[in-house]
């Protein structure tokens, strides 16, 4: 603009420059995070590739790095995940149904809701302490898969509940009203009308919470998962180990070969996580397009 103004000194060039500098700073922040991600994945791949093989997946851990494998850890993780799903699904979905469809809007509902939100913020190791005292000792499950699964189920329960609640809330009320209108009881409405529509969202939430549980280490250590397991578990009361603990055990050793093994274990873990998350995302997208499109 041509005219100079005596009252104002807009210093546009300087402000523009500051803006560009700031934008560069913000961009480098993002670049930093992405760089760390890439380096992490690259390091894991580089260190672990040499050790990652079919033998690796099918062998037991060993003091001799060349013969070590993650079979018991993988099987242990699978056992634990199945039990976590079996425990957290009914309780989580049940709680969500209660909160969304049955609970009167009042103090009780708000109390439970706040409580769940607070539980989501409790450090995972505290859940481990709880599991140690309640499941291992009090209920007498010992250092078993069941104790580990129950502990992890409690850990992910808030996540399951919140995801299920959102899915249930997303069901349009017109659907419920139509069902009530033909004389269905509350449970009939829930079971035949609300749940089927909400199920994809609920399942997505379940898969995401399982993918969180499978990577948890601290609570499982507290509950007594072993570091060195030379057998495959056959039942829920067996001693066990899980993949993250095996990784932890190998990482903590000073020798370089064990770091390579750890990296290979991480590759396995990350692949499993990738598959789980991809499934969840595909599920969500498929049902979102079906509903909205």
């Amino acid at each position: 603009m041509s005219l100079q103004d005596e009252r104002f000194e807009p210093r546009l060039a300087r402000r523009r420059r500051n803006g560009k500098i700031f934008q560069a700073v913000c961009l480098s922040s993002i670049a930093f995070s992405i760089a760390m991600l890439i380096i992490l994945l690259f390091d894991v791949a580089k260190d672990g590739a040499a050790w990652f093989s079919f033998d690796f997946i099918t062998s037991f851990p060993s003091r001799i790095p060349d013969r070590a494998g993650v079979k018991p850890a993988i099987l242990g993780s699978l056992w634990v995940m199945m039990l976590v799903a079996a425990i957290s699904f009914p309780f989580g979905v049940g709680a969500a149904i209660y909160l969304e469809e049955y609970a009167p809007k009042g103090r009780v509902r708000r109390l439970i809701q706040t409580n769940i939100a607070n539980l989501a913020g409790v450090p995972s190791i505290v859940y481990g302490i709880l599991g140690l005292a309640i499941f291992v000792r009090f209920f007498g499950f010992g250092r078993s898969i069941l104790a580990g699964a129950a502990t992890l189920a409690l850990l992910v329960l808030p996540v399951v509940i919140i995801a299920a609640q959102e899915a249930i809330r997303a069901v349009p009320s017109s659907l419920r009203e139509a069902a009530y209108g033909v004389g269905a009881t509350r449970w009939q409405v829930v079971r035949h009308h609300v749940l089927p529509v909400a199920m994809p969202g609920i399942l997505t939430g379940m898969i995401l919470s399982l993918s969180r549980a499978i990577g948890e280490t601290a609570p499982v250590i507290l509950v007594g998962a072993l570091a060195f397991v030379a057998f495959t578990p056959t039942g829920p009361m067996d001693l066990f180990t899980v993949l993250p603990i095996q990784i932890f055990n190998w990482t903590a050793r000073p020798q370089a070969e064990f770091h390579g093994l750890a990296a290979a274990g991480i590759i396995v873990l990350l692949i499993v996580l990738l598959m789980m998350n991809a499934t969840a995302i595909l599920l969500r997208n498929y049902y979102q397009s079906r509903r909205g499109g």
Partner: peptide
């Protein structure tokens, strides 16, 4: 505005908006 096309390439919208 003031003898200039506000949509010229060299016009800064920030300057326009104060006026």
């Amino acid at each position: 505005f003031r003898g200039q096309n506000l949509y010229d390439d060299d016009v800064d919208p920030v300057e326009v908006r104060r006026r």
